[in-house]
Structures are given as structure tokens and as C-alpha cells.
């Protein structure tokens, strides 16, 4: 073979899953619904149908899968290369395999690492789908299917999508960028997850819970206090582990996946 794949480390990213205009529109609407699904305690109107109850996350647990199905069906539909699909399956297996390595029951910190690196190499569309398939597969393996799963899938999908849209840098700058992004993504993910399941976990009748009558700012204020007191350490720990993984193992994994992407030349 004349071309030696070990040598050039060209920076061309391969988009393994293409984003058609229709996919973009669907993703934009899904982002809107996602924003609603994660921040609903701040938007809830005291007179609204779901105000008297803390079951709003369960509404989203039913609604999000429908929307995710439409978006993922669109992304993986007509022009998905079989090589990209096989890579998606194998990378989802990696996500599922590293998940139990994360500490504790909330051990999601490790899964962002393969998602971020793969999305960096294979592009935003692949990142979004991998976030979904990866978390679904890991939930099926570790029996983690629950009302929280659609939220996790959506969030991980957007982490992948946004990773794919980060500016193109190379070398140390790229790793620094990805590590910073990993910290940001993990912390924001933690906050949003806590926010959306806040009323669900602590119940409506305690003073650290939200009260739709108080208005957005007061609720946000209370949430921040609650979150700092309870799960901030957790979130920061998760963010730092992800960033550490990106810094320590990222270069090796990037190299492997870029080599694969060059050889596969997704059609």
C-alpha cells in the first residue's frame, strides 16, 4: 500500500452522519423541547395543568421518546453508510462498557468521554445519535431504564452534537478545548438533570423544593442554593473526571478513531 495511514494526521473531519436541512429543523425543535424538559420547574405557571403535581418529568418521559424517535429516524434514515452504522454500534458498546466503570450509581461521568471523542472525529450528527444509542444500550445492559433515561439520552445527544460543532483546532489546543468543553458539558448536564428532577426527588412540600407560585427567579435562587448544598461536589467531581480522561486518554483515542475514519472514508 502506497499511502501510509500512520503518517499523516490530516485535520479533515469526516461527517459520518449527514445533517440535512430537515434534520437541522428537527434538531432545533428537539432543542426547544429539551430546554423545556430540563428547565420546567422555572417555567411552571401556578395555574397550569401540571402545577399541582410533581409529575412533569414523567410527562417528558413519555413525550421525549416520541421526539427522539422522529429525530433519530431522520438522522439515521436514508443516506447512512453501513460503515458509520457499524461504528455507531461498536462505539455504543464502548459507551455501555465504560459506564459501570464510573463511580457510584450516578456514574455517568465516564460515558461523556467516548461520546465527546467520537463526536469530535465523526461529526455532530454521529455525536447526537451516539449519545442516544450509547445511553440506551448502557441502560439496557445495566437495567437503568427509567423515567430519567429519555432526559439522559437527549442531553448526551446534545453533548455529542455540540462537540461536533466546536471550532477546529489541532494538537494540544484541541485537547485543551475538549477538556474545557467536557467540564462545561458535565457541569451543565448535572445542573439540568438535577433541576428537572428536583421536585421529583425532594417532593413538593418541603422548603427546599420549588413552588410555582414564587416565580422564576425565586425558584432559580432556591435551586442554586439547594444544588450547591447537595450535589455540587458530585457535579464538579464528574466534570473533573471527564476532563482528566480527555486529557490523559483523549489523544490516543482520537488517533485511533481518526485512523479508522480515514480508512473507512464514509460514503
Amino acid at each position: 500500500m502506497a499511502d501510509n495511514p500512520a503518517l499523516p494526521r490530516s485535520g479533515v473531519r469526516q461527517d459520518a452522519v449527514r445533517l440535512s436541512p430537515r434534520s437541522r429543523v428537527l434538531l432545533a425543535v428537539a432543542a426547544l423541547l429539551g430546554a423545556l424538559a430540563f428547565t420546567w420547574p422555572l417555567l411552571l405557571d401556578p395555574g397550569a395543568t401540571l402545577a399541582g403535581d410533581d409529575l412533569a418529568p414523567l410527562l417528558f418521559a413519555l413525550v421525549l421518546p416520541v421526539v427522539l424517535a422522529v429525530v433519530v429516524a431522520q438522522l439515521t434514515g436514508d443516506d447512512l453508510d453501513v460503515k458509520a452504522l457499524a461504528m455507531l454500534g461498536v462505539m455504543s458498546a464502548v459507551v455501555a462498557a465504560v459506564r459501570p466503570l464510573g463511580a457510584g450509581t450516578a456514574g455517568i461521568e465516564t460515558v461523556f468521554f467516548p461520546i465527546i471523542i467520537s463526536a469530535r472525529v465523526f461529526g455532530p450528527g454521529f455525536g447526537f445519535v451516539l449519545g442516544n444509542t450509547g445511553l440506551l444500550a448502557s441502560a439496557l445492559i445495566t437495567a437503568g431504564v427509567g423515567p430519567w433515561l429519555p432526559h439522559q439520552m437527549l442531553a448526551a445527544g446534545f453533548v455529542g452534537l455540540l462537540t461536533g460543532l466546536l471550532p477546529r483546532l489541532r494538537g494540544r489546543a484541541e485537547i485543551a478545548l475538549l477538556a474545557a468543553w467536557a467540564i462545561l458539558a458535565s457541569v451543565v448536564y448535572g445542573w439540568l438533570m438535577d433541576l428537572s428532577f428536583w421536585p421529583f426527588m425532594v417532593g413538593g412540600e418541603s422548603t427546599i423544593s420549588f413552588d410555582p407560585a414564587d416565580g422564576t427567579l425565586a425558584n432559580l435562587h432556591r435551586f442554586v442554593v439547594f444544588n450547591l448544598a447537595t450535589s455540587m461536589g458530585w457535579n464538579v467531581g464528574r466534570a473533573l473526571t471527564t476532563a482528566a480522561l480527555v486529557i490523559l486518554l483523549g489523544p490516543a483515542l482520537l488517533r485511533i478513531l481518526r485512523r479508522a475514519a480515514r480508512r473507512a472514508s464514509f460514503g
Binding site: 500500500m1 501510509n4 495511514p5 500512520a6 503518517l7 485512523r259
Partner: peptide
């Protein structure tokens, strides 16, 4: 062996 070959190749 070509020294700069990738071992997987």
C-alpha cells in the same frame, strides 16, 4: 520493517 509503519498495518 518500515520503522514508521503503524503496528496494526
Amino acid at each position: 520493517l518500515v520503522p514508521d509503519r503503524h503496528p496494526r498495518d
